[in-house]
């Protein structure tokens, strides 16, 4: 027993035989820092310096310019429709998969993952093939004067498709690990299906749910490939922030392009901050509790 404690003490102090030589540690640490700097930190700095190169006034002007404002509005519309819908689909799918047994379950799981495994451009093309003028439903749609492709509905549809898995993927493992005993208990105590969902199931997964929504939102606002195919790039009408940034960049208007890009970057930073906050918050809830229980014993 004394021997074991001695070994533990050694490895803690960092001078034991288990530690690598100093130069190896230095090389590994600086390698990791260099990698992070070049691939993650540097791009962030570039985006903001480029956007602000001609001063804050030009930056504000390029964000407030009508086409840019329209792009921001469209991005928000797409997210506001896609995120709540995927929230509902995601909770329903996770609930069904995690709490019930039924034939075709693994097929459903694969189906939910489909948007992850298909290239976004291909999913955009699928919508064009379905709803475009030459597509399957095209003639019927044009007869009834409904425009989906190269219009706002197409962008919303593509966004929903691409962001579909986020909430469900986040919830399924969490709900599975929690089992369905608490739901059964709620039912034996007289709770109905909705009461069980609102009072037991959802509160138990609230942090996972919030995390899924944040990821879903980030992707909905940042999606390029699928949206690009169905949009048609009509300035002021069917351009989202990423599409507008690309157009401006191709026109050598790099300050305006980076101003657009900086909006998405800010979204990313907010997402990361929220994610860190959620991790911290749920960690506290998990951790504080056993410690108190121990103190009790």
């Amino acid at each position: 027993m004394e021997l074991i404690t001695a070994t533990i003490g050694n490895s803690r102090s960092g001078t034991g035989a288990l530690t690598e030589p100093r130069w190896v540690r230095l090389v590994l640490i600086s390698g990791a820092l260099l990698f992070l700097g070049v691939f993650l930190i540097l791009p962030l700095i570039v985006v903001f310096t480029e956007a602000l190169k001609k001063g804050v006034e030009v930056y504000i002007e390029s964000v407030r310019e009508p086409d840019a404002a329209a792009a921001i509005r469209l991005t928000l519309i797409a997210a506001v429709i896609a995120v709540p819908l995927n929230l509902i689909f995601g909770v329903a799918a996770a609930w069904a998969i995690a709490k019930f047994q039924f034939p075709g379950k693994s097929f459903l799981i694969t189906l939910i993952d489909l948007p992850f495994s298909v290239s976004p451009v291909i999913s955009g093309l699928i919508f064009v093939l379905l709803f475009g003028l030459q597509g399957w439903l095209g003639p019927w749609l044009s007869e009834h004067d409904i425009k989906i492709i190269f219009a706002v509905p197409g962008i919303v549809l593509a966004t929903i498709f691409v962001t579909f898995p986020f909430v469900a993927r986040e919830l399924i493992p969490l709900m599975q690990s929690q089992g369905s005993e608490e739901e059964e208990a709620a039912r034996t105590l007289g709770a109905g299906g909705w009461q069980t969902l609102w009072r037991v199931t959802l509160p138990n997964v609230k942090w996972g749910l919030l995390y899924g929504v944040i990821l879903c939102n980030a992707r909905a606002m940042g999606e390029f490939g699928a949206v690009s195919v169905v949009s048609g790039h009509i300035r002021g009408y069917t351009n989202t922030i990423p599409l507008h940034a690309e157009i401006l960049y191709n026109e050598y208007n790099s300050t305006a392009a980076f101003a657009m890009a900086s909006l998405l970057t800010i979204l990313t930073l907010v997402t990361i901050a929220l994610k860190a906050f959620i991790d911290w918050k749920s960690q506290i809830e998990v951790r504080q509790v056993p410690e108190q229980a121990l103190a009790e014993a």
């Binding site: 005993e181 208990a185 009072r199 138990n204």
Partner: peptide
């Protein structure tokens, strides 16, 4: 019904 692992509502 009292469940084997109690199934208390953890939240």
């Amino acid at each position: 019904f009292v469940f084997q692992h109690y199934a208390l509502f953890r939240h």
